[in-house]
């Protein structure tokens, strides 16, 4: 009996206390996987960026510099925590935690294996969309609450990007629902056993990928923390422990984004030989590598241009994609 079926049995048990206990166990497992990914991803990102810039990246601590991020983490956490005098104290300190919780919640919904039942809810895709769409607002509040002018500008930008990018994401999600005939993420994955949605709707993949880059603040859409203009955007006035948390959020959201693309367009856990969870993680890993390579090679877009791109290119493309998908499927 495999571990995921045990968890499934626990979660679906008639006793609600046992069910709750197993959900918490599952959430902790997800947290561990997420942290491991964030840690390794941080290391890989440093290495890939260094290699593309003729550098070595971290080499000193541990084998191949694997412990460098741990050292950085310890350094950041052991420093003093200061809240800026101008900050709205409660909002400022609560927002990152809220964002971590939201990310964990989003990853809980994503199906890692065919068996886990907590993920098998009818409105999975809608719940994910709400969680994704809400995070720029949380970032806006965090930037707004820090009382710094650079953070203020970055907060305004995050709202502008929300306007530019939520609509195409919503339309692409609609076309996925048309193709899979369900909001349930399990059915969406199973629907792809014949043909990945990436092949069915390449336009949709493009739009979703670009919108995800904007959502996750990766280049060329990293306007919220544009280092050459806004120093660090919404993180300009924060102390090191807060910054460490923000970095962790950055990487976990990256994990969430690449998992989402893998599930919606590349067939999630589907694949021969390897266990399902490994297939999903491998796909997410490759997608996040692509995101790093994009980060190394492009220059940042300007905010007015981003809006124009979102409205004049992404929305029409996603509508065309919706129509094409409808015609093919029906």
């Amino acid at each position: 009996m495999s571990i995921d079926s045990i968890i499934e049995a626990g979660i679906t048990s008639p006793n609600s206390l046992v069910s709750l206990l197993f959900i918490i166990i599952y959430a902790v497992m997800i947290l561990v996987i997420m942290s491991a990914f964030a840690y390794l991803f941080g290391w890989i990102e440093r290495k890939v960026i260094a290699k593309s810039q003729y550098r070595h990246g971290p080499t000193y601590l541990g084998k191949y510099g694997l412990l460098q991020n741990m050292a950085d983490l310890i350094k950041l956490i052991s420093k003093e925590k200061v809240t800026p005098a101008n900050a709205e104290k409660l909002l400022f300190s609560a927002m990152p935690q809220l964002l971590v919780a939201m990310t964990i919640f989003a990853i809980l919904i994503i199906p890692f294996t065919p068996n886990i039942a907590v993920t098998n809810i009818g409105i999975g895709l809608l719940a994910l969309f709400v969680l994704i769409a809400f995070s720029p607002i949380v970032l806006f509040l965090a930037g707004f609450a820090s009382g710094n002018k650079f953070a203020d500008i970055s907060a305004q930008r995050s709202v502008l990007m929300l306007i530019g990018y939520e609509l195409p994401v919503m339309i692409v999600i609609a076309s996925i629902v048309v193709a899979a005939n369900s909001y349930n993420l399990h059915s969406i994955v199973l629907q792809q056993s014949k043909e990945y949605f990436a092949l069915l709707m390449p336009l949709g993949l493009f739009v979703f990928f670009v919108a995800m880059l904007a959502e996750l603040e990766r280049s060329p859409f990293d306007l919220r923390e544009a280092d050459s203009e806004l120093i660090a955007g919404w993180l300009t006035d924060v102390s090191p422990p807060y910054y460490a948390l923000a970095l962790f959020i950055d990487y976990t959201r990256m994990f969430m984004g690449s998992l989402l693309i893998a599930v919606l367009f590349f067939g999630g856990w589907l694949g021969p030989l390897m266990p399902p969870i490994l297939w999903l993680l491998a796909k997410a890993f490759i997608i996040s590598l692509i995101i790093i390579v994009i980060r190394v090679s492009v220059v940042r877009m300007r905010i007015d241009r981003i809006l124009r791109f979102g409205w004049f290119w992404l929305i029409p493309l996603s509508l065309i994609n919706l129509v094409i998908t409808y015609v093919i499927v029906r």
Partner: peptide
């Protein structure tokens, strides 16, 4: 210049 318009230090290093 490439740095200033928001590239991640790649052109700078090159």
């Amino acid at each position: 210049m490439c740095n200033d318009i928001g590239q991640m230090f790649t052109a700078f290093m090159w």
